[in-house]
Design a protein around this nucleic acid. Structure first.
Lengths: 205, 205
DNA sequence: GTATAAAACGGAAGGCCGTTCCGTTTACTC
DNA sequence: GAGTAAACGGAACGGCCTTCCGTTTTATAC
């Protein structure tokens, strides 16, 4: 790694910071196409969809899929992480566009949408495959600070009560989003709406 | 079906009542062996265990498995139904051996054990496979009357409060048994114990 | 521009699994 | 004991995940 045959400068002039080592242009392109394809296929056919199908939709061979994601589960995990990240990013956007209380409410609904849509996730998480063991921790690690920021701002603005812990709220919303017992898809949204209103009650105290 | 070649009476002398049509002795034996084998294999290797493995442990060929259970999911469903039945039967045993309140509490713990142990079930139920769609209804249909009997007896004896619906109790206990978040296996038992004590509070009113 | 090495690609092939099929065996009836 | 339908067993098929390696593409050196 220290001295390679023919390589004096090129991209390695400023690489010390991290072991970034940029992907080749085609590799990066295929990686993006794969994640996008996988997201679409999982959404329509579920997480059990064949890898071949994802590869085909992305316009690559299966070998390329396994170059980027050694196991099928790695691809699934990558997709979920990306969607969590999108949910986290939405917090900043909402905070910039709305008053604190409104931003909080809207983000909770956004979170419900994420949980509800990705019900295939539950199947993966409960499958017993240890490949997914790190996902819940990642969820917590990324989502909690995002919610915390929104929550703190809303409390500071006197729009919601204080004393509610972000973790509890995340868990409660996830639980409410869980069953969809009778096949009523609006149930979760309604219950969480109720919960959000509950937060406002007793504000400015 | 009406007139078959050579069959004048034999077992068909008293078959009108139902379409029972007893299985041949070896078939019945293999069926029992299969269910027992499947229960054991699912418990140790999860519901994803190969059918071949179950067949081998039962000492039969895979063809025999598929003769009794046309689909792999049929075998899984049969095992779960059998375990639900065992849980239901336990209600009568407990009711005969203990005072009503005690019987109720013990049965709830028995129910927790069932739910917790069969966590593989969650994976199957959330897999999206419609083969499992009828299972929840079966659970409800069998478990509710069993719990109802215990509950009514306990209420009549003045040992627990009235006004608690069996369905709500079943659902609540199932929810409490669900996550096992941090890997604490006693959590569910403790919470349900609490719940059972709560039932006793305010009795004889 | 050309040469060269490394990186990345693609798809055939291997292995496992669910399911089907059919020749053989077994359990009942007379 | 003979006959017949039920039941059996395992080879074979198709689909899937994963590996492997010859070929192609990119990035760099000259």
């Amino acid at each position: 790694m220290v001295n390679r045959k023919t390589q004096k400068k090129g991209r390695d002039t400023q690489p010390r910071g991290r072991t970034v080592r940029h992907l080749r242009a085609d590799a990066q392109r295929n990686l993006d196409a794969l994640l996008q394809s996988a997201m679409a296929v999982f959404a329509t056919s579920g997480v059990h969809a064949p890898v071949r199908q994802i590869a085909e939709k992305a316009g690559v061979g299966v070998g390329t899929v396994y170059r980027h994601f050694p196991q099928r589960s790695d691809l699934i995990v990558a997709v979920f992480r990306r969607e969590v990240d999108a949910c986290v990013d939405a917090a900043a956007v909402l905070a910039a566009a709305h008053k604190p209380g409104e931003a909080l409410t809207r983000w909770l609904q956004r979170y419900v949408d994420f949980i509800s849509a990705k019900r295939g996730l539950a199947a993966a998480l409960h499958s017993g495959d240890p490949a997914y063991d790190t996902l819940p921790a990642y969820f917590q690690k990324r989502l909690r600070p995002a919610l915390e920021t929104l929550l703190d701002a809303a409390v500071a603005a006197g729009e919601v009560r204080s004393g509610v812990k972000p973790d509890d709220l995340l868990r409660a919303v996830a639980s409410l989003s869980a069953p969809a017992h009778d096949g009523d898809p609006t149930h979760a949204r309604r219950m969480v709406g109720l919960l959000a209103d509950g937060l406002r009650y007793g504000a400015k105290s």
